[in-house]
Amino acid sequence: MEIIVAITVGLLVAIGIWMLLDRGLLRVVLGIVVLGNGVNLAVFSAGRLDGRAAAFVTEAGAPALAANPLPQALVLTAIVIGFALFVFALAVLKRSWELHGNVETDRITAVAEEPAPDLPAPAGEDKA
């Protein structure tokens, strides 16, 4: 089980990074999601995978083979946060698509590095 999870994490992270290096912004955003899932799986596996019983601790102590609830809680938090950030990234992607047409990362960087536009003189304002 550990080996399968480890290989899956490695594959997901590798695919995620490969997609992050792509020219198209869509792939970059999806790459973040794939990378995020790989990381989530890695965090999840940090709490051992052999837990089979729910971690209800009674007076008699924890059950044998109790699953570790902490990484599960951590991953849940990370999934929720990751989802919110993914939605924001998608919104930015959609707006870039509307403004630029083609969403190539080179073009995005070029636009961000363009010289600052001059401020228009405020209309109807008295001279100071």
């Binding site: 992050l20 995020g36 965090v43 999840f44 951590l74 950030l85 990234a89 930015v92 403004l99």
Partner: peptide, 28 residues
């Protein structure tokens, strides 16, 4: 212009944050 700057900022900060999350998980 602002949107393009945000794309750069968002992508690189998300990658950094995921590195942190992975590190926190591994540390645990």
């Amino acid at each position: 212009r602002r949107l393009s700057g945000t794309v750069v900022y968002v992508v690189l900060n998300l990658v950094a944050t995921m590195m942190f999350l992975l590190a926190a998980g591994m540390l645990y």
